[in-house]
Simulated assay, not measured.
Amino acid sequence: MRHSAGMILLSVSILSGASLPTKGPVPVPKPAVPGEQATPTPELKPGVPPKGAEINRKTGAQPRVEEKEAAPGDKTKDDSIEEVFLPVKEEPAEEHASCLADLKALGGTFTDTKRIDDGKGCGIDKPVRVTAILPGVALKPEGTMRCATALALARWTKESAVPAAAAAFGPDTRIATVNQASTYVCRLRNNATAGKISEHAHGNAVDIASFTLGNGRTIAIQPRDEDGTLDGAFQRAVTASGCLYFTTVLDPGSDAAHEMHLHLDIIERKNGYRYCR
Rank of each mutant, 00 (worst) to 15 (best):
D112V: 13
D112W: 14
D112K: 11
D112A: 02
D112Y: 03
D112C: 13
T113V: 14
K114L: 06
K114C: 10
K114G: 15
R115C: 00
R115M: 04
R115A: 02
R115Q: 07
I116P: 03
D117T: 01
D117S: 00
D117W: 10
D118S: 13
D118R: 11
G119A: 03
G119E: 00
G119C: 08
K120D: 09
K120S: 12
K120M: 12
G121L: 11
G121D: 13
G121T: 13
G121R: 04
G121W: 02
C122K: 01
G123W: 00
G123H: 06
I124M: 14
I124L: 07
I124F: 09
I124K: 06
D125S: 12
D125Y: 12
D125G: 09
K126L: 14
P127Y: 01
P127M: 07
P127N: 00
V128E: 10
V128P: 06
V128R: 10
R129T: 13
R129E: 04
R129H: 12
R129V: 13
R129M: 12
V130M: 01
V130A: 00
T131A: 06
T131F: 03
T131N: 09
A132Q: 11
A132Y: 03
A132R: 11
I133L: 09
I133P: 02
I133M: 12
I133G: 03
L134E: 15
P135E: 10
P135M: 04
P135I: 07
P135G: 06
G136P: 10
G136F: 14
G136S: 15
G136D: 15
V137T: 14
A138C: 07
A138F: 13
A138V: 05
A138G: 10
A138Q: 13
L139R: 04
L139D: 03
K140H: 03
K140A: 13
K140W: 06
K140F: 05
K140R: 13
P141E: 08
P141F: 08
E142F: 12
E142P: 04
G143N: 07
G143T: 09
